[in-house]
Amino acid sequence: MLHFPSPVGDGAVGMAGEGQRKAFQYGLRPPLLRLSNRDNWDASWGEQELIQRMAALAHTAGLPFSRTLIVAYYVSLKTNPFVVLTGIEGAGKTELATLFAETLLGHGSPQYALINGDSSWLGATGDQRSFRSLFDHFTSLRFLELLQEAADPGSAGKVFVVCFDGMHPAEVNYYFTTLLSVDEEGRTRLRLPGVSEDERPIVPANVSITATVNTAEGVGVLSADVLRRAGVIAFRARRSTQVFWHPPTPAPVGLQRLWLRAGRRDAAAAREHLFQIIGSTQWNRMGCSEPLAVALRRAGMALTPRLRQDVMLYVANSFDAEGRGLFDPDDVLRNTQIAFDHQVAQRLIWRLHDVPDPMLTYLMSDPDRLPPLAWAG
């Protein structure tokens, strides 16, 4: 049985949340935060620069990802530590997860685990049940070992990134609903055999998890639990460009701590930050852009209070500590609208694939109308 130290992630998140609220008042260089982190924080870096670094590394690697896609994935991970990327093989899903890891951690970091979920070998073994047991055991151990390191008190300022690559829907359901669970207080725990619910180790807040699903390789759907807990981004086209990964320059000092401070996953803190930027009145008036709203009405779908809270968290995370938008740094309301549509699409679009609506088909195929599908640019 692996031993997990008492996680430091929850405490770090609480302190980070306080720092974020002060950062909004004092700007990019809050005096107390500057004093406490003077040895490990490069104050010239913020989230805008982090995203620019991702875009530059993508260009160097030959990845034709638009800035919109990069920001959508980035904000999804800020909002939720679990993100699922779906699409046909070769669409660039794994490359996007690797790009994020290389941006924060540098090239070849042991803090990035790429766990191959490709079960194409399964049919060649002649014993599917035996192979499945071995496969689950091996990948789960790799995952647990990384989580154990992330939970160590000495890793409080480190980021750990996991990508379960080439998964089938059933495999994603296993990891996200069988191995992982969310308790009533919103903490993510591991369901280890023989361990009581209260003693299940908490997944540290410094771990970000991405699963890529090759939708053309299998049947089945993601479970409702997965879709409620994870951000979902669908890749609509195949990437034909060859990727050239070059060892990037070392990540700037303090970039990992910047990422750990950036995320707002507490509803109250997120609401406070968002209302400081756009005000409660403007937020209460906000809804889907008209083309997306029309498609949802035709499908008989509405924004429930729970969904609107999920959208609020995402929109709040689409702004940096200074209140500048990550999708649009110069237009607060436009950034809000883009982020609003992104999250609604992520939460609902998977339920609309079979709706015979010409408007919906248009929205899903036009990158300018539905921002989460704006891959090329």
Results as ranks from 00 to 15, higher is better:
F160L: 05
C163V: 11
C163M: 12
G166F: 04
H168V: 06
A170E: 15
A170M: 12
Y174Q: 13
Y175S: 02
F176P: 00
S181T: 11
D183G: 07
E185W: 08
T188C: 13
T188V: 14
L190E: 07
G194R: 10
V195D: 08
V195S: 13
E199T: 06
E199M: 11
P201A: 12
I202F: 04
V207P: 03
S208Y: 12
S208K: 05
T210V: 14
N214V: 01
T215Q: 09
T215K: 08
E217V: 03
E217C: 02
E217A: 12
G220S: 04
S223R: 07
S223W: 05
A224T: 14
A230C: 14
G231I: 00
G231A: 08
V232R: 11
A237H: 14
R239F: 00
R239C: 11
R239G: 10
S240P: 04
T241D: 14
V243N: 07
W245K: 13
H246F: 09
P247L: 08
P248L: 02
T249A: 15
A251I: 01
G254Y: 01
L255V: 02
Q256R: 06
R257Q: 11
L258G: 04
R261I: 01
R264F: 06
R265W: 09
A268D: 13
A268P: 00
A270W: 01
A270E: 00
L274C: 07
Q276F: 12
Q276V: 06
I277F: 02
I277L: 09
I278M: 15
S280D: 15
T281C: 14
N284F: 09
N284V: 09
M286Y: 05
M286E: 13
C288I: 03
